[in-house]
Design a protein around this nucleic acid. Sequence first.
DNA 1: TCCGGTGTTGGACACATTCTAACTTTGGAC
DNA 2: GTCCAAAGTTAGAATGTGTCCAACACCGGA
Lengths: 131, 131
Amino acid sequence: MNAIEVLAQAGIRPTPQRLAVAEFVLAGRTHPTADEVFAAVQHTCPTISRATVYNTLRLLVNKGLLREQVLREGVTVFDAERTAHHHFVDEETGQIHDVPWEALKVYGADQLGGFEVHDLQVVLRGRRRRA
Amino acid sequence: MNAIEVLAQAGIRPTPQRLAVAEFVLAGRTHPTADEVFAAVQHTCPTISRATVYNTLRLLVNKGLLREQVLREGVTVFDAERTAHHHFVDEETGQIHDVPWEALKVYGADQLGGFEVHDLQVVLRGRRRRA
DNA sequence: TCCGGTGTTGGACACATTCTAACTTTGGAC
DNA sequence: GTCCAAAGTTAGAATGTGTCCAACACCGGA
């Protein structure tokens, strides 16, 4: 399914600007910031403005095509992986890696009196070992 | 142990500004942002500058008296609880609550090939039920 | 008392993000 | 095709968080 179809299916009018953003952000396995998206999209759509990138990213988040993650200091990153998973943050490079949901088991979240949990993830920080 | 002793023991010269910051930030069970600390400390120390608040908070973090947490969008919050624990973020109010380490069990983090985990926490998001 | 080091200050700066007001494009209605 | 209103886009201004910097204040020791 290409980007046009994805947007249309979500009820988003597929303008060239939105397509450029969606193609970049839904394709890769990265966790880009809004500014990284802006920089990348300028190659294919040089007149696009920052505001449109922010607007489009928010739109994609609201329609559930993208998730917003608070993982790096000072910036918001976006995650195209929509199924539940955990995150590993490399403390040296700031890079964020997805950790499959099945790789970790969390017990006890349903027994927290007073808290209605909508979302849960394990955030790991450390160093990525060289291969 | 009062704030003067705490700072002295950490090898920090206890100036009035640092005491004001330390007294506020080490006392409460809140997770304040730097700006909230600044606002609060101005009541007891009206001439303090933003720079000193940031400098002092960083100093306290470096000396291990405080932890920096990336939990809210766009801002860094500080946490006086130094032992390992998890966090619950209220999606409506943005308030952050500590979840005791023993309340949740996480398995599998030591079997992640390629990742050397230094720190781990579960981040829960949802709504706090009224009591 | 003088001096060097440490700490503080306020303002300038940098960056991420949102807002605004004007402009462009689109999809009908005629 | 022409017109219009709605939707989308744009550049730049504004806001908010955090850092940097140069000048000043304070303290302890010679």
